[in-house]
Design a protein around this nucleic acid. Sequence first.
DNA 1: CGCGTTATTATACGTTTGTATAATTATGAT
DNA 2: ATCATAATTATACAAACGTATAATAACGCG
Lengths: 215, 215
Amino acid sequence: MRSNRRKFKHEPPDQRKLELIEAALSLISENGVKGSTVRDIAQRARVTQGLIRHYFSSKSDLILSAYRHHMEQMNGVTYASASRLEGSAKERLTAFIRASLTPPVVSPRAVCLWASFLVQLQQDANMKKTHEETYTEFRDHLEDLIAAALKETGRVVSKDKLRYLATACNAVIDGLWLEGGALPDEFASDELPDIGLNSIGSIIAVDLREKVAQP
Amino acid sequence: MRSNRRKFKHEPPDQRKLELIEAALSLISENGVKGSTVRDIAQRARVTQGLIRHYFSSKSDLILSAYRHHMEQMNGVTYASASRLEGSAKERLTAFIRASLTPPVVSPRAVCLWASFLVQLQQDANMKKTHEETYTEFRDHLEDLIAAALKETGRVVSKDKLRYLATACNAVIDGLWLEGGALPDEFASDELPDIGLNSIGSIIAVDLREKVAQP
DNA sequence: CGCGTTATTATACGTTTGTATAATTATGAT
DNA sequence: ATCATAATTATACAAACGTATAATAACGCG
């Protein structure tokens, strides 16, 4: 009897794992975590469902891996923008804000993923831990950049005041990020970073507006 | 033979319906939409699951009703704060921002509900319509208040500039709302409206501070 | 080429889910 | 008190779900 079995290729384990994670993320952004079944995820990755159990001990294990991967990617993009610059503290802060308010960080996908994962955070202690780590990391990074930018202009602020400013700036970034991702058609391509730089500039009293190229 | 059947009381239909909606909302804020089964919802409302089908044609009908109820309530609280004031435009804008950044609008429950519903918006056309209506309503309300406050100080801005300012202010409110709800322990009771009033005041160049408050 | 290993497919199982329908109880009008 | 009606409970069912296990095909190594 002829075999009806699907043909398949052995992929390097890390690559297959990544494919499953990518399939999971794209589906979760569309249907949420509970709305993304292991069968759906396997189908999108073009494998059969049993394979998921071969690479991940359970569905929630896959979800956690996908969450970590996504957060690392988002934060990575943002941090890289600020750290590869050799310029002034003000320029690094500007680059950081700009990266936070530009695709791929700002995107419907990212907002939907954030919303989908939020529900799980309440129930999965491992995810909650990952969340707190990445959030604190981002917030401290922003606080350092603000402190450096203020110092650069000769200003010294108390620890409390610095925390206050970082919280406000962080909220502005989050808000713009949220709106930009939730309503992608409402904003012109440069509008979001523009609003962000102006607003944060107002809050910390540092002019972050980027000048037109000098003659 | 003695009946094992549960005793029950007839409730006024509207009240029972509201109880089911409240049970649904509280459960959705904990477990998401897909994570809240009709059995769970019925149990929290202390009725049996069949009753849900008696009041709602399907689960998604109940979800839509719950979403509408929640949004009306949130917007209602905010609008009431600004409209019952007879004071200046600046005072009304301040009250509006303050209400948007104070419980019950700011709360873990509200943020979780927002996140849970966001996923459904992509798939349910009725919910999407309700969403766009309530969002536009809020945003226009804010824009009107900003316009009035600017006019009060003798300033006139273009339509585009006004839209720009409203978008930025809206984003600040959203961001602070998000952070306040997601991290309720990070903020002292008056910190959130304080940051909001300062930041928005900076953006539109109107001093909204009610007292000497900045640390 | 043959062979062990493991990546992959295929099938099966028990539970939960939304929905449908039947059976009963409470309530208000007569 | 009785009766009709609406509210509520109880039960049933097919589909979908996460998980477990068995079968097979691809691959690297001798």
